[in-house]
């Protein structure tokens, strides 16, 4: 049986992790490669690296980082942040990334998804959607969630699937950072409507929240950052708890 995936997310700036990560065993708290190795050993099923600066000069640093991570880590990982061209994707995949995630650039130019899927295959194209609930509607936001668009989240999700996205990373901005649980209703609606996998993100604070988003929210994977970084939730303990609740896990 296909297991549900637990995915820690690392924010990257100039090739270093941004938020401090609270592990006693860490030698260099800003070294993404070392952190990736710790998560991989701890039972993470996949990793996401999000480049929050994503400028032209940082691109080379990011490619170099991908190379280092891929040479050390033997679980799949996704890289995102500021990706807007086929050439970026090609560089990152050739450096050893398994998937790339696109967000604002896909909203600006939806055909980018078609082009990327045709060139590299749907399986490595993740579309990240940042959604906020505004006056009765789930609305897509871009630029790190700072800019609302005209797009409704579900309609956009269906469009990106049609254009060839292989997976969706759905972040609820309303839930993000609250640690009060994932946006289960929206996740369920998306996951049961689409035929591609949906990664739920935003709001995970406890094992109960992950159980909710897998059982109720029908998510294929769940992503979190700070609760793993600050060791508030241990990945293996979380996975054991979820397995005890009959959610299929790789343990």
């Amino acid at each position: 049986m296909l297991t549900k995936r637990i995915i820690p997310c690392l924010d990257i700036k100039n090739g270093r992790t941004v938020k401090g990560i609270n592990f006693v065993s860490l030698v260099d708290a800003g070294d993404p490669v070392e952190q990736a190795a710790i998560y991989s050993d701890a039972g993470a099923d996949e990793l996401v690296f999000l480049d929050i600066t994503a400028t032209l000069e940082n691109r080379k640093t990011l490619v170099e980082l991908v190379r280092k991570v891929a040479s050390k880590i033997n679980i799949p990982f996704t890289v995102g942040g500021g990706i807007s061209q086929k050439e970026h994707v090609s560089e990152l995949l050739n450096a050893g990334a398994d998937k790339v995630s696109v967000n604002s650039a896909a909203v600006r130019d939806p055909q980018l998804i078609d082009r990327l899927a045709a060139s590299f295959g749907s399986q490595c194209i993740v579309v990240a959607i940042d959604s906020r609930y505004i006056e009765g509607h789930d609305i897509v936001h871009t630029h790190g969630g700072s800019r609302p668009t005209e797009l409704e989240t579900m309609a956009w999700a269906q469009e990106v699937e049609r254009r060839g996205a292989g997976e969706i990373l759905l972040t609820s901005m309303d839930h993000d950072g609250t640690k009060k649980g994932f946006a289960c209703d929206l996740t369920r609606k998306m996951s049961t409507t689409l035929t591609i996998p949906v990664i739920a993100s935003g709001g995970g604070g406890s094992a109960a929240h992950f159980e909710e988003v897998f059982n109720g929210g029908k998510a294929d994977a769940a992503l979190a950052a700070s609760i793993f970084h600050f060791h508030e939730v241990d990945i293996m303990d979380l996975k054991k708890e979820l397995q005890a609740a009959n959610i299929p896990m790789r343990i």
Partner: peptide
């Protein structure tokens, strides 16, 4: 219902 394609993840 409930199966996605591609088959993506750990099995």
């Amino acid at each position: 219902h409930g199966f996605k394609v591609p088959h993506m993840g750990w099995n």
